[in-house]
Design a protein around this nucleic acid. Structure first.
Lengths: 344, 344
DNA sequence: CGGTAATATGTGATCGTTCACATATTGTCA
DNA sequence: TGACAATATGTGAACGATCACATATTACCG
């Protein structure tokens, strides 16, 4: 093994001819260090390629400069973007991010993830996973007095939450279709154990109800293009009439487009589609996709800011921070050709 | 602040009525612990919600159970997938991953990233970024005796490298087009400061040269659909004749498809397109995209295995591990209608 | 020149673990 | 029953940094 024993603060002190405490002062930029000592210590650090050990520092300081993240579904666009932004933002605040990705939303996995992060003595925690089934009391017992920010999850009483308003997003999409004159509007949603999906369903329903319109169809799929393709193919073959379609992410919308093309539908004349997320490819689909833009970088930024507030003022009451998504109109939506149409 | 002082091994020992060392033995599953002591310690751990401090453990053990990753461009599909897989794999080997994402490939950033990870005393390092301009001697000086695995980078003498064979991948794509009878084949590549892009260019060129065919065009873009759209639009407007197009990732291919549709090209009759990566959406594009499949999960798996080997046998000479990508034929490629065609 | 403050440096204890070693207890067999 | 091994437990030092405090040096002002 490489038992080469890494250089320590003492090695540097010895070489510079000062005490270890002086070296510590140089590292931490304490003002009371003479110019001579400073130079000699810096020279020694360079020469010995000294790097202070975070572990030792954390132990002594009783804080880790680490932020824990519990993430879910990071292979999907939204979570992946958020996580990447989170990492960048954290680095700018000179925090290190420690990410644990859970593969399901069971209490067992969530609690194991929290334990892992508590061992690392993270200074704060961002839970970036839908937690529909978790009891608040259970969470309280594991998180203890760790500062936590939730996102993508249902409102937690007394807990800090930063989220993009999915309800409003879906409503914007549905309203756009309604304003164009669509009367038969279907929803292709993601899995309902994602809280985001639940909220989008509610927003869509709310818009339709307010307009006095009955939903044409309410489908659930798995966020993938394949799933979207499958569901819309089935819907078309079932003969259910619809002219407007709200899809809960752009990948499924892509699959839906394919299904519609295969069934010789003309787009957007025959069916208008609104996606969700505004992935970079959306503007280049056939036809370019009208969609609900979500600012994941802003979500990351805000949740980190909120976590910082939690860490600095642990007793401050935290409120809900909400980001509003934006409707991006492209050419996949238009006025319906006929007020009503069935199977082609 | 929450100066509540977390519970330590001593608190557990006191409650269980044993010495701290016995508690340590329980934590580390040492065999020589009596059944009674074991039970009492476990009870105390439960009751006090004790979690051992990783920082203290690492300090004492002189190893961190952390693996550092230096990543680049994680907002793109390939890197994002690899990173996510890496995290999952590392967790399975009960390592923690510490990721630093660099925003450019300057020596300054790479070396800062390595310093950050050295401070964390990572046990090993996976450099998952193209390092075309970095001198080997510079790297040697920073990495010192840290076990390192490179990937997505040019072969390093004496260093461990795991990579997907991009040269072969591009050649497979080009050969497919050649076998269909295409004579005018263009390449739409990613930025050439990615080593992957460079290798794909070489593989494509090599296949064409072997067939005695001159390249129709050699374009460089930025991996995005927007970039691909722009470049292919320009190519079409320039009137350069081509019937086959190899694109270095599927997002750019998506943009290229859009450009071709807009110019009223019939696909695949007028132009055959081969993508790269096989993103989940590829099968649902218009038309479904023939592409080169890359197994990013396997890449992550292999590089971690190799790193483990490096860590366990530091003096073992490491070789180059290569994964071979696979051609997935869908309907975006067919025989050329005419042996030659210019601007439409 | 004495006194007080500001600056510069050093010493011992501490953070929460593990390791090496010492010691106490139990078991097994001649 | 005595001897020796195996099992079980405890003690002090170490890991590499920071903190609180003590001390030495320099600076300034009346």
């Amino acid at each position: 093994m490489q038992k080469a024993k890494l250089t320590t603060i003492n090695d540097v002190a010895a070489r510079a001819g000062v005490s270890y405490q002086t070296v510590s002062r140089v590292i931490n930029q304490h003002p009371s260090v003479s110019k001579q000592a400073l130079e000699r210590v810096q020279e020694a650090i360079q020469a010995l390629k000294y790097q202070p050990s975070n572990a030792a520092r954390h132990l002594a300081k009783q804080q880790s400069a680490m932020i824990g993240v519990i993430s879910y579904g990071t292979l999907h666009y939204g979570p992946a973007q958020t996580l990447a932004s989170l990492e960048r933002e954290a680095h700018e605040l000179s925090y290190t991010l420690s990410n644990v990705n859970v593969t399901d939303l069971s209490f067992a996995q969530i609690s194991a993830a929290i334990q892992t992060l508590r061992r690392q003595r993270v200074d704060g925690l961002i839970i970036f996973a839908p937690l529909i089934d978790i009891e608040h009391t259970d969470l309280e017992s594991i998180c203890a007095d760790l500062p936590v920010v939730f996102t993508a999850t249902e409102p937690q009483p007394k807990r800090a939450v930063t989220a993009i308003d999915q309800f409003t997003g879906a409503r914007l999409g549905a309203q756009h279709l309604l304003q164009l004159g669509h009367q038969h509007i279907a929803l292709l949603n993601g899995p309902l154990d994602w809280y985001d999906a639940l909220l989008r369903q509610q927003g869509w329903l709310s818009a339709l109800q307010r307009a006095g319109i009955t939903p044409a169809a309410d489908l659930e799929s798995d966020w993938t293009a394949a799933g979207g393709y499958q569901q819309i193919s089935a819907l078309l073959e079932s003969g259910t009439p619809f002219t407007g379609l709200l899809v809960a992410n752009d990948q499924m919308a892509l699959g839906a487009l394919r299904a519609l093309h295969q069934h010789n539908y003309k787009l957007p004349e025959d069916v208008s589609i609104v996606g969700f997320d505004d992935i970079p490819e959306s503007a280049f689909l056939e036809p370019p996709l009208t969609t609900i833009h979500q600012d994941f970088a802003a979500l990351a930024h805000q949740s980190l800011l909120q976590l910082k507030a939690c860490m600095e003022h642990p007793n401050l009451k935290q409120h809900l921070r909400v980001l509003i998504p934006e409707l991006i109109i492209r050419s996949s939506t238009t006025t319906p050709k006929q007020p009503f149409r069935g199977k082609k």
